[in-house]
Nucleic acid binder design. Structure first.
Lengths: 338, 338
DNA sequence: CTGAAAGCGCTTACAG
DNA sequence: CTGAAAGCGCTTACAG
C-alpha cells in the first residue's frame, strides 16, 4: 500500500502539497496538481483514514442507533440515512439497542468513542442517558433522546388528516384505538385525532368519539376490535381509527371473523403505511410517514452542526385505499346531516 | 479528553505500561496494574481508536454490504451480525448496494479503505468485482461474491423437506413455482425439490411434478397461481410449492379469488418464513431460513481469518402451519395408494 | 518486569 | 505558492 510519501516522491513535491491536492486546496497551482494527480493514479494511492482521523480527530462516519433494525420503519429510515450519508462520503455505523436502555447507553458510548461526525438515535425510552459529556452532534429521530433536537412525523397533524377523511365520509360514531399513552408518539396521535374531531363536530349531537388504549400490535387490534364489533350495529362505531397499521390489520381480522364487511359496514384506518397495508384485502387507508424526508433531515441537521438546531416535524401524507368508504345509511341510526 | 500520557503521569508509569494494561498484557505486575486502572478510572480515560488504528492498521469494525436493508431477510441478518459483532466489541458499518453492481463496488471499496476486520457481503449479482486487491477477509452470505466463501441456507435440502412434507400428506400432483433460474439460489431450491420428488416417486404412475418459472414476488404467485387453478380440479395439482413466501402468498390470493379453499382443496408451501407467513389466514407452511445461525457463522469465519475457509450450508427448519393438509380424496382422480 | 523511543500516515500552522 | 517540520495518540520491538 503506497503512502502520501510515495506520491510526493513520484510527483517530486512535498507531502504537504499532496495533502493539499487531496483536500482540494485551491492554492495549489495547476501544474503541480496535475503531477500529483498523475502520481496518485499510477500508484493507486488511497489515503489512510486512520492517520487522517488521528490528526483531525474525526472520522467520516455517522452513527445510527435504532431499537430494532428489523422493524420496517427503522429499516426504511436506515436505508434513507445510509443513502444520504453515502452522498456525502460518509459511512453509517449501525447499532441495535433492542429497546434496552443499558444496551443503548453502551452502544452510544461505543459509537461516540470513535469520534463520528454525529450520531442519529431513535431513543429506546424517554429516560435514556449519556455516559459522559460529548461535543459530537446528536439528533433524535421519531423518539426523542434526552434534550437533543427531534425530527419526526407530525403525528398530531397526520391523525387530524385521518379524522378529516373519516368525517368527510360521513362517519360520526368513531372509535380510536390508541398506542401506549406513556409515550409522546402515542399521545400525539391520539390528541391530534381527538382535537380535530371535537373541533369539527362540536355542534353535532350525533357525533361520538370513543377511545381504547392498546399497543402497536395485531393482537391489540384484534382483541379491541372484537370487543367493539360485538355491539349492536345500530349503535356501534361505523369507523375505527387505529394508532398503527398493525392495530388496524388486527381490527380487520376481527371484522372478517365476525362477517362484518369492510368498508361497507365498517371503515378502518391505520397509521404508518407499512408494506403490508397495501397487500391485505381490502387495502388499508393510512397515513404514510415521510421516512425519506426524516432521514434526509436528520443527516442535514447533523452535518450542519447547527448549534441552535430545533425540532422538525414533517408532514405525512394520507393514502386513501379500500378500507374506508362512505358511512352506510343503515348503520347511522338516523338520517345523516352532512 | 485525557490521553494515555495523562494516565501514565498520574499512575507514575510509562505510557508503554499503560498500553500493556489496556491490552491485558499479563507481564504487568499487579501493583502497577492497579495503579494504572485507578488512574484510568479517575481520569475517565477512553483510548483513542484512531491512534490505535493507525498503529495496528486495523479498526474494530465489520463491514456489511446488503442489497437492501428493508428486505426483512437482510434486516434480520444485519441484526444478528450486529449482535455477534457487539459481543466481540466490534461495530458494524452498513452499506446498501441497491442490487447495483457499480454501487456495490464503490461501497465495498469505501469499506475496505477503512481497514475493517472483515467484510460480509450479500452479493448483488454473480459477477461482482473488487476494485483492487485486499488482504482483508471477506465472506459472502446468501449470494456468493466472487470466489469468497459462502454461508447460506441449504436451499436444496430445505426444498426437499417441503417436498417430503407434501408427499407425506398424500400429494402426488404438485406444481413448483420456481424463482429466477439465472440465480444459484433459484436453481438450488428448484433442484432440491425436483430431486427429492423424483427419487421418492419414481415408481408412482400417478406422480407428476410441473414447473413454472417466476420471480420472488406476489404478482408472480398470483398470476401463475391463477393459471394453474383455472384447470379442471380433477387434473390440476393438489399442492403448489413456491420458491418464496411472497410467491406462495400470491398463490393464496389467487385461490381465494377463485373460491378454492386452502388447505381443503389446495395445499400451499413457501420458503423463507417472513413475518407475514404467520399473519395471513391460513398461516403458511414454509421453510424457516436459519438467519441467526448464518449471521453468527459469518462473523465467526471472518474473525477466525481462516485462510482455508470453506462454504457453509446451514439447515433450515420446516414450519408446518395451516396452508397444507392431507390431499382431498375427491381431487385425486383415483383412490390413493400411500 | 518496566521504560525510552521510534514510528504509523497524515494535516496544518509557519517560514520563505 | 510550496516545503520543512511538528505532532496527533497510540503500539511495539528493544534495552536494561
Amino acid at each position: 500500500m503506497s503512502t502520501i510519501k510515495d506520491v510526493a516522491k513520484l510527483a517530486e513535491v512535498s507531502v504537504g502539497t499532496v495533502s493539499k491536492v487531496i483536500s482540494r486546496d485551491p492554492t495549489v497551482k495547476a501544474a503541480l496538481r496535475e503531477r500529483v494527480l498523475a502520481a496518485i493514479e499510477t500508484l493507486g494511492y488511497r489515503p489512510n483514514h486512520s492517520a487522517r482521523a488521528l490528526r483531525t480527530n474525526r472520522i467520516d462516519v455517522i452513527g445510527l442507533v435504532v431499537p430494532d433494525i428489523t422493524n420496517p420503519f427503522f429499516a426504511q429510515l436506515a436505508k434513507c440515512i445510509e443513502a444520504e450519508a453515502a452522498m456525502r462520503n460518509l459511512t453509517v455505523m449501525l447499532a441495535n439497542s433492542h429497546d434496552d436502555e443499558a444496551t443503548e447507553r453502551r452502544q452510544l458510548s461505543t459509537l461516540l468513542d470513535r469520534a463520528p461526525r454525529g450520531v442519529i438515535i431513535v431513543a429506546s425510552s424517554e429516560s435514556g442517558r449519556l455516559e459522559y459529556q460529548t461535543d459530537i452532534p446528536i439528533v433524535s429521530v421519531d423518539r426523542r433522546f434526552q434534550t437533543y433536537p427531534l425530527i419526526s412525523t407530525h403525528h398530531a397533524e397526520g391523525s387530524a388528516q385521518l379524522a378529516k377523511h373519516l368525517i368527510g365520509l360521513g362517519h360520526r360514531r368513531i372509535a380510536y384505538i390508541a398506542g401506549p399513552q406513556n409515550t409522546r408518539v402515542g399521545r400525539a396521535r391520539k390528541e391530534g385525532f381527538a382535537t380535530f374531531f371535537t373541533r369539527e363536530l362540536a355542534a353535532d349531537p350525533n357525533a361520538s368519539l370513543r377511545f381504547y388504549d392498546g399497543h402497536y400490535d395485531y393482537q391489540s387490534g384484534e382483541d379491541i376490535g372484537r370487543e367493539i364489533l360485538a355491539e349492536d350495529p345500530a349503535v356501534r362505531p361505523t369507523a375505527i381509527a387505529a394508532a398503527s397499521d398493525q392495530i388496524a390489520i388486527g381490527v380487520m381480522r376481527a371484522a372478517r371473523d365476525l362477517d362484518i364487511s369492510i368498508p361497507d359496514q365498517l371503515s378502518v384506518t391505520g397509521f404508518d403505511d407499512i408494506d403490508l397495508a397495501a397487500l391485505i384485502v381490502p387495502r388499508l387507508t393510512t397515513l404514510k410517514q415521510p421516512t425519506a424526508e426524516i432521514g434526509a433531515a436528520a443527516v442535514s441537521v447533523l452535518i450542519a452542526e447547527d448549534e441552535s438546531a430545533e425540532d422538525i416535524k414533517l408532514r405525512g401524507e394520507i393514502v386513501v385505499r379500500g378500507s374506508t368508504g362512505p358511512v352506510n345509511a343503515l348503520l347511522t341510526g338516523k338520517s345523516q346531516r352532512v
